[in-house]
């Protein structure tokens, strides 16, 4: 049990259904549906997924959607900009709480 993350485990994702088949099957059906061409193209969804992967800091997802977004034709620059969008939202999410801090300080200070 020395490795928390093993890249080969990504290929075993489907095995999560082993312990709870019904829920697992429902998840994978829904997951497949989400990434189909629809109001957004599968290509656009791959870039959103790449950004979210960075926001949730999931190495499996980053591997998967770096490949998918590149395969579908996004350039290195476009992909890095998507990562910046994720980072900007994460950074912004921390910083906007600065207002909460300011509110508290203003409340307790004279």
């Amino acid at each position: 049990m020395s490795d928390y993350y093993n890249s080969k485990d990504l290929h075993r994702f489907g095995e999560i259904s082993t312990y709870q088949k019904e829920m697992g099957d429902k998840f994978f059906d829904w997951y497949g549906e989400v990434f189909k061409d629809s109001a957004l193209t599968a290509k656009e969804k791959s870039l959103i997924a790449l950004a979210v992967s960075h926001a949730v800091q999931c190495p499996y997802c980053i591997d998967a959607y770096s490949s998918t977004a590149y395969e579908k034709g996004y350039s290195e620059t476009q992909m890095m900009e998507a990562v910046h969008v994720a980072a900007a939202i994460k950074g912004g999410a921390a910083l906007v709480h600065g207002v909460q801090m300011m509110n508290k300080v203003e409340k307790i200070s004279m």
């Binding site: 061409d37 193209t41 599968a42 290509k43 490949s67 590149y70 395969e71 579908k72 034709g73």
Partner: peptide, 17 residues
């Protein structure tokens, strides 16, 4: 043809791009 170790995306989508 892919410039790397991956498969081509769907031909129609690529053609439109």
């Amino acid at each position: 043809n892919p410039a790397g170790a991956f498969l081509p995306p769907p031909q129609e989508q690529l053609k439109a791009d």
